[in-house]
Amino acid sequence: MRFLLVAAFGITSCAGLGECSLQGPEVYPKQVATTGTQTHSETTSVSTNILQDHLRVNKASGVLLDWKTGRLLASVGEQHAATPGSLLKPLVLSYALRRGIVSANTTVYCRRTLHVANRSLPCTHPTDQPMLDAQGALAFSCNTWFASVARRMSAQDLEEVFQQTHLRHSSAQFNDADTRILTALGLEHVSVSPLQIGTAYRALLLHESHTSAVWSGLRDSVVYGMANNARVPGIEVLGKTGTASNAGTWWTHGWFVGAISDRFVLVIYLPHGDGGAAAALAGAVLREFLSEGVR
């Protein structure tokens, strides 16, 4: 019994738009199933109250979608659009793997210093693992690895990523390599609302094998990677963090996307934040959902 969780949280900044908070690996015991069922109206009422309790103080927005049908179960706050940051990485990776642009075994040496179009985008993952494959790069949200993928993609490839995911983007000239990289990293030329990114992630995970590099990378992100703050003992959570700034602003906002499949999709957005704080908020929301039997 699983569901998909997507959350965003806000704090003032995150150096180099990297993600935050790493802890050691955790081995999860067998999935714990909840007992009893809730009606659609009961799920809507309970989940809305939980979201309001957690989001009210930070003026955040959130939506809850049914995993199987995509039905909107709850909505709190306004639907603001913002740059997604690293939330785009699983979508880019899935496309690149399907088209043979990279394979799950493609490795890239990360020097942790990435400069694109006069922007510094350093990686913040551990220094003892400089060689990363697709699964590890997603777990650690490696900017260098995904910049290398963007360089291999054509302008049409990147355009197709947005067409297939139905995410709003500008008519940028993707023929320029720097533009492709910044777009693939979710830092420019694209903005999403919580509902849009939740819908995109639901579609992604419905079509991913549980053994794929995308699925495994999102799982490992929560087990020991950048989304580690969202871990829930006894539950396998898939997760992805994102940190970015909107054009013309100096502060960052943070996102978290996570999954426990077959149940529902949660998206939370707060306009000031980083991915690590977003993951921590998502973990708290997820634990209360489980304790209240939200299904």
Rank of each mutant, 00 (worst) to 15 (best):
R180P: 09
H169T: 15
A184W: 11
L286S: 05
S191K: 03
G293S: 04
S209F: 11
G283P: 05
A8C: 07
L17G: 04
L87R: 04
D66K: 00
L64F: 12
T39I: 12
H210N: 08
R99P: 05
K240S: 04
M153V: 07
L187I: 14
V192E: 03
T43H: 02
W251T: 07
A203G: 01
A277L: 08
L91D: 00
R287P: 02
R180E: 10
P233W: 02
V214E: 03
V232T: 05
W67I: 10
A259L: 13
S41P: 01
V76C: 02
L72I: 10
R231K: 05
S171I: 12
Y201I: 00
T249Y: 04
H253C: 12
P90H: 06
H210V: 09
N228E: 06
L4Y: 10
I235C: 01
A282E: 01
F9Q: 06
S291E: 08
G248H: 07
L93V: 08
A155F: 08
P90A: 11
S86C: 10
A33V: 13
L138H: 00
P25W: 11
G18S: 14
V223Q: 12
S86N: 01
D274N: 15
V57I: 11
R295L: 09
E19Y: 04
Q164T: 13
L218G: 01
D157T: 11
L72W: 04
T106L: 05
Y28R: 10
H40M: 08
L286I: 10
L22T: 00
N175V: 14
D176K: 13
S75C: 05
E19S: 11
G16R: 09
P233I: 02
F174Y: 13
R99L: 08
L64V: 15
V6N: 09
S191E: 14
A82R: 03
G293F: 08
R112P: 13
S245H: 15
S148P: 05
T113D: 13
Y269R: 04
V285Y: 00
Q164P: 08
A139W: 01
T179C: 10
A200K: 02
L87F: 08
H80W: 07
T34Y: 09
E236Y: 10
P122Y: 02
V257H: 07
N58T: 11
T43N: 12
G254T: 02
L17R: 10
E26T: 05
T43K: 15
G186A: 04
W215M: 06
T113G: 12
K59L: 15
F162M: 11
F256T: 04
T241I: 13
N229K: 08
S221A: 14
L73F: 10
T165D: 01
P90C: 13
C110L: 12
A184G: 08
H80M: 12
A8R: 06
R111Q: 15
T69I: 13
C20V: 03
S86T: 09
R231P: 00
A139Q: 08
P29W: 01
T144P: 01
V190R: 09
L206I: 12
T252F: 06
T35Q: 11
L195D: 00
T243K: 06
G136L: 15
A200Q: 01
A15T: 14
Y201K: 03
L65Q: 07
W67D: 14
Q52K: 14
A104W: 00
E236M: 07
L286D: 02
S103T: 15
I268L: 12
